[in-house]
Design a protein around this nucleic acid. Structure first.
Length: 493
RNA sequence: GUCCCCAUCGUCUAGUCAGGUCCAGGACACCGGCCUUUCACGCCGGCAACACCGGUUCAAAUCCGGUUGGGGACGCCA
């Protein structure tokens, strides 16, 4: 069997969004599964909207997700000559013709058709212009586009879609579409096919929004006498109102970069995206790269569109809750070394990284991450809610401050007293700290919880956290004593 | 207006091709409980869906037809 070759062809007119990322993921999985190749091709033929920033953003996004490619990035504009040559061939073989209708004329006809509730497609005005007439108009200086001459055959045009099955359309429903602009620049419909033929693409996995393009491109393959690749049209990703996800109307929450900045694990996003429109047919929901690559298949892609369930303005569910849950799952179950590697850049960014975490304090670093990760949602939490584990400079959350400390003014003296008891311990461990804490509460006639919760707030700034005595041991005797001795500032304002 | 695609819990979905084992299974979310020095994690339990109508059949979520609903496309954008 011939080598599987797929491609991911973004147009650089904006950042990489989750729909595009999922398309890239499905292509990548398919290529890897078949030991095939993935080509990255930047389709930059829209000169007005293409930007270098978009190109960089898309490439960064793919790299962050870990979706690597084997060839490219190729740039579509580098192959404009191929596209024009193909158009010339189509003209010569009678598969295309020159059309002198102006934009204005066409727009007017289109509007009129729509207003009269008629089909707005091209009416074929220039389809049968004679060679002489063409030459005359060209000599006259009239600009012309090149249109593909859709065969006027009876019957149906079709292709077999790996996801949707046989897709049919009457020839008469396909209008003569433009393949080259009047300024000589080729258009997507043509360029895309010419490039896919040259790049020997065997499988085209793309969104269902391309289905009408596919019916037209099938004709192009035929006219160019090239073998038809396999098509797989994947369902679209919609918002809660069932609108197609787009960069302009949904903002950053649909941008891959947003998840990178928010501290999501790249593989968690991939895992989520894989499940948005595909399932393995078993109840497994978490997959390693290897597992997903082995399990993925085009025929288990859903036919129906799926909803990316996020509510703008919701603090807790700022993105799809399932994505958050998957991210938390990986946060909690990742091997400590892998987690350590992911957290390192976050701590570095926050100025909390200590070179010793890669050396003598490696095990302390990893143990600490494992201790605190159960309550976290993203990697960023390690530098925010988890800041006190890595630095003496941390904020005290006002809520627990009021509830656990200010509520009991006596703590202003109790905490330093507790610090003194801890300082006196020759063996600072789980048992000794708990015993002395409970003893003190007993002597004062208060519940141990008063001291414990006050300590948690003073030592970590947080309302919630791991078992208090685990925290003590993790922070170490010196830090605990230092922080508990100086609680005056908590009462400052 | 035309063409194409789709339709199971709030969301992602299993089951549909090969009708019965489905008064519909899982996950997330939500609610309750257990655990507990806090909050989580974890565990246990609960709520919640076959769009509608008709046909075929002993039997339909599953097959057929229609209706409704949703989406996509109809650019000298990609």
């Amino acid at each position: 069997m011939a080598e599987v070759r797929v491609r991911f062809p973004p147009s650089p007119t904006g950042y990489l969004h989750i729909g595009g990322a999922r398309t890239a993921l499905y292509n990548w999985l398919f290529a890897r599964q078949h030991q095939g190749k993935m080509v990255l091709r930047i389709e930059d033929t829209d000169e007005e909207r293409s930007t270098q920033a978009s190109i960089d953003g898309i490439i960064d996004g793919l790299r962050w997700l870990g979706l690597d490619w084997d060839e490219g990035p190729y740039f579509q504009t580098d192959h404009a000559a191929d596209h024009v040559a193909a158009a010339e061939r189509l003209l010569a073989s009678g598969h295309a013709y020159k059309c002198f209708c102006t934009k204005e004329e066409l727009e007017q006809k289109r509007e009129q058709a729509l207003a009269e509730k008629r089909d707005p497609g091209y009416d074929g005005t220039c389809r049968n212009l004679g060679a002489e007439e063409c030459s005359r108009r060209e000599a006259d200086g009239q600009a012309a586009v090149i249109r593909f001459k859709v065969p006027r055959r009876p019957g149906l045009l079709f292709y077999n879609d790996e996801v949707l099955g046989r897709i049919e359309r009457a020839y008469s429903d396909v209008e003569d579409f433009v393949i080259v602009r009047s300024n000589g620049k080729p258009l997507y419909l043509l360029s895309n096919v010419v490039d896919d033929i040259r790049d020997r693409i065997t499988h085209i996995i793309r969104g269902q929004d391309h289905m009408t393009n596919t019916t037209r491109q099938v004709l192009l393959y035929e006219a160019l006498e090239a073998p038809l690749p396999v098509f797989a049209h994947i369902p679209l990703t919609l918002d809660i109102q069932k609108r197609k996800i787009s960069k302009r109307s949904h903002g950053e929450v649909v941008a891959v970069q947003f998840y990178q900045e928010r501290g999501f694990l790249p593989w968690a996003l991939c895992n989520f995206l894989a499940l948005l429109g595909w399932n393995p047919g078993t109840e497994q929901e978490y997959f390693s790269r290897e597992e997903l690559t082995a399990t993925f298949s085009l025929d288990r892609i859903n036919r129906a569109n799926s909803v990316f369930n996020f509510k703008p303005g919701d603090d807790k569910f700022f993105t799809d809750p399932k994505l958050i849950a998957i991210n938390e799952h990986y946060l909690r179950n990742l091997d400590p070394e892998q987690l350590g590697a992911l957290v390192q850049p976050v701590l570095e960014q926050a100025g909390l990284w200590d070179a010793a975490y890669a050396g003598p304090r490696r095990s302390w670093y990893l143990d600490t991450l494992v201790l605190i990760r159960d309550r976290f949602h993203t990697l960023n939490d390690f530098a925010e809610a988890g800041r006190a584990y890595f630095s003496d400079q941390y904020d005290i959350d006002p809520k627990p401050l009021a509830k656990n400390i200010l509520k009991h003014p006596e703590l202003k003296t109790w905490l330093p007293q507790l610090a003194a008891r801890f300082a006196a311990l020759s063996n600072f461990n789980l048992e000794s700290t708990e015993t002395s804490c409970r003893q003190m509460a007993d002597e004062l006639g208060i519940k141990p919880g008063v001291l414990i919760n006050a300590m948690r707030t003073a030592l970590t700034g947080q309302l919630a956290g791991p078992s208090m005595f685990d925290i003590l041991i993790t922070l170490g005797q010196d830090t605990v004593v230092r922080r508990l001795s100086r609680v005056d500032h908590l009462y400052a304002s």
